[in-house]
Write a protein that binds this DNA or RNA. Structure first.
Lengths: 213, 213
DNA sequence: TGAGAACATGAGCAATCCTCACATTTGCAA
DNA sequence: TTGCAAATGTGAGGATTGCTCATGTTCTCA
């Protein structure tokens, strides 16, 4: 009823937090909720995560959960956003100063290793990410993030090949980026050894595309 | 309690059909159920599909649904399997006689176009596929299918480069194949024009990898 | 033709997300 | 300090939905 919160598109979307915690007390409680959710997701996956369980583990009532998160998806997304923000900072730092082919090769390879390592080590990220794949609204948000990340790559490519068609560079960068995410996701869902091979193979495939066009 | 059905792995898995329809009558009814499910998925997505709705649309009782499908996932998977089988036949035919680089180029490009077209035209495939992405058990089955498909590509590569390391060829083929699926999935989730560009870009990226190693 | 297997039914069980009416705490102006 | 509005907290219960099971019907085949 009250449209005070931002309502951009008429589409089904991730509802904004019903209320943002303004007092110290509630800010701490929201932290506890997210921590509980994260732990439960790590144990059993976001799908099996029960809101009641989250509330119990966080030491709050079920009602408090819904005070700050409009629904379950929003909680999962809140966690995803955290990692997203961290990632973005990391990516920006790694690609900011790349200005030649060799630099790109190194930065890209390193970035992929970090990403792969993160997914291997953090079941929460893995689960949250695969959760977003199935949900239309979440996937759209994820795509937007990915596009933003790809922009850093576009900037590098424009520096390396100033007279190439910008649209083509955008397409290439976005594709390479998305394929990188897909490759990592694939890699963590097979045996470790094969996963390593796949990531290595992807690196060479992507770099070939990025450098030798 | 009764383990008469095939139980291969101790893992959580897709339960086998509780009972396969042996009489004409029930075979027709199962067809109706799948058709209803397919229609509903096309309309609203598999997540929003209600088993009660499927039963109603198929003109059967809810109990009959569960007579032949142990649970909702199994219904979705049954649909996925159909397309899977069709695909496999198509892929096998397209790659069977490829024996040179030019042939691979053509066959691969054609295959990707078909795949892309299929996803564009069939909302059921799209939805079922994204559904399988989130579900561990379904994803494992999907991966197995994908691996089988990649084998056709491996065979071609072995013909083209007989003295390359077989493990490397396997890795390359599997990666290229999976990236192809990911690329198509990406392409259908953006504007048509960008999707076309992405598919084209993927073709060139993949072929570069397949041919020029 | 009759017995048993296959098939069909749908009320209702159980699990789970989320709401809402009401209680408590906090910030702050008078 | 006091009083009050806003922020925060609570948990029983509404609503939805996947799935079961006791019971009835139809088919097959000796």
């Amino acid at each position: 009823m009250d449209d005070t919160a931002a309502s951009a598109s008429p589409q089904e979307q991730i509802a904004a937090p019903r209320r943002s915690p303004s007092q110290q007390r509630s800010r701490e409680r929201v932290e506890r909720m997210l921590a509980a959710a994260s732990a439960l997701i790590a144990e059993q996956g976001s799908d099996a995560m029960r809101m009641g369980e989250v509330a119990e583990k966080a030491g709050v009532s079920i009602g408090s959960l819904y005070q700050f998160f409009p629904d379950k998806r929003a909680m999962v997304w809140a966690l995803a956003e955290r990692y997203s923000a961290e990632s973005q900072a990391c990516i920006s730092a790694a690609l900011k100063d790349v200005s030649d082919a060799e630099g790109l090769k190194q930065a890209f390879s390193e970035l992929l290793d970090i990403y792969y390592g993160l997914f291997l080590a953090e079941p929460v990220i893995r689960d949250v990410w695969s959760g977003t794949q199935a949900d239309k609204a979440l996937r759209a948000l994820e795509l937007a993030d990915s596009r933003a990340n790809a922009e850093f790559l576009v900037a590098v490519l424009k520096r390396l090949r100033p007279d190439a068609d910008p649209v083509e560079l955008e397409t290439t960068a976005f594709l390479v980026w998305q394929m990188g995410e897909a490759a990592v996701r694939l890699a963590i869902s097979v045996e470790r050894e094969e996963g390593d091979r796949l990531v290595a193979a992807y690196k060479s495939m992507a770099l070939r595309e990025l450098l030798a066009e």
